[in-house]
């Protein structure tokens, strides 16, 4: 039997990789994919908790997370397409209208 802590460790490592990817990459497309990575790592930990606590609520939460991830991907990619049409830029350092 694999200990529950191992699953949480795996989930944490993938979450942190996704977070670092979101921070260090310039390409908005890869940043959106890093968000998907983070959501998936949370799903892994929820399914593991659901299995070890013998309760199906964790898996129901995974459903809702998948729903929100699909909506987020659709909206994020629509924003990206609109941005590319208007500015022909997908790198975060080329977008500086707000002088940040």
């Amino acid at each position: 039997m694999v200990p529950l802590n191992w699953y949480i460790g795996l989930s944490a490592v993938i979450f942190v990789i996704g977070m670092v990817g979101f921070i260090v990459r310039k390409n908005i497309l890869i940043m959106l994919m890093s968000i998907e990575l983070m959501l998936n790592s949370v799903n892994i930990s929820l399914v593991a908790f659901s299995h070890y606590l013998q309760d199906l609520r964790g898996q129901v939460f995974v459903f809702f997370i998948i729903t929100v991830a699909a909506a987020e991907a659709a909206i994020g990619l629509a924003i990206l397409v609109a941005l590319f049409k208007n500015k022909a830029a997908v790198h975060t350092d080329e977008i500086m209208e707000m002088k940040g």
């Binding site: 944490a12 990789i17 977070m19």
Partner: peptide
């Protein structure tokens, strides 16, 4: 960014290493 990620990984490790499992539910 990498240093920030590693520090958050340490934080998660120290908070979850003392994990105590709760009571089991009905869906065995």
């Amino acid at each position: 960014g990498v240093a920030l990620g590693l520090s958050i990984l340490m934080l998660i490790y120290f908070t979850t290493s003392k994990l105590i499992q709760g009571p089991a539910g009905q869906f065995s």
